[in-house]
Design a protein around this nucleic acid. Sequence first.
DNA 1: ACCCTACCTTAGACATTGTCTAAGTCAACA
DNA 2: TGTTGACTTAGACAATGTCTAAGGTAGGGT
Lengths: 138, 138
Amino acid sequence: MSDLLARLRDRHWRLTAQRRVVAQVLDGDHVHFTADEIHARAVALLPEISRATVYNTLGELVALGEVLEVSTDGRAKRYDPNAHHAHQHLVCESCGTIRDVHPSGDPLGSLPATERYGFSVSGVEVTYRGLCPNCAQK
Amino acid sequence: MSDLLARLRDRHWRLTAQRRVVAQVLDGDHVHFTADEIHARAVALLPEISRATVYNTLGELVALGEVLEVSTDGRAKRYDPNAHHAHQHLVCESCGTIRDVHPSGDPLGSLPATERYGFSVSGVEVTYRGLCPNCAQK
DNA sequence: ACCCTACCTTAGACATTGTCTAAGTCAACA
DNA sequence: TGTTGACTTAGACAATGTCTAAGGTAGGGT
Ligand SMILES: [Mn+2]
Ligand SMILES: [Mn+2]
Ligand SMILES: [Zn+2]
Ligand SMILES: [Zn+2]
């Protein structure tokens, strides 16, 4: 994630304490936190950080392509720092656990030209749903 | 959609004016309205119908498997009466238009056993994103 | 046809998630 | 070290969805 800070410096970002803390919370490639979860963890490191700044910083990281926005449940969006390796998600319907998964083949290839209705198709999101081992054993 | 009313009667649903109107708004297999859009159209047919009843009725139709809930944009959920033919969605990133599409192959099959982490995988949602012909011509 | 009553509907309060504004603060550059 | 425009903040506001208590009614029983 220090890579991330370097990239942001290159883009003439001001490196404020607040932005450092948000980046630190997102460190680790397999987290999928909501904005409020990120805010709570950020407050533990920098008590005076505001909700607005967390939302602002996350929005900027998404616009820069450094973080992905994931909506797996129609509730709060989740923020995914694993933006540099294409992947999809497997979600437990019971406890909400999210795993990164890597399907075989190109997901875009599954949409035939006759099903594209003249769209220029540029991306695809796949969400697999099921029960995780913990929740499956009732 | 009269099929739907018959099925609901069979399940001992009370056929109230409000429920008839919600079903009528959802008639047609290729609509993807938000709850508020459905409420606005329902009010045009039955002015005193409340927001709570629309939400209640939609939730019940989803629980019965007669309507699908679709979250394509992280904003309001959309309600899809085309619940009896498996399909996926193609969304215009600019204007939000949604088309039903039918990918080739079984979308579930693209997730190898080694990527399932012990989950019992029961479903998959695929959202293709791009620009519709109207929006593509700037 | 009329009652009952369990189920349904309603208005509006409340909850969650996200956006915006105006005023104060500070990181980076000179 | 001073300057300045970008950044942060508290809190109001907005959008979407949930809940409750009170009143209404569909449909079975008579
Ligand atoms: Mn991920
Ligand atoms: Mn559909
Ligand atoms: Zn689980
Ligand atoms: Zn479009």
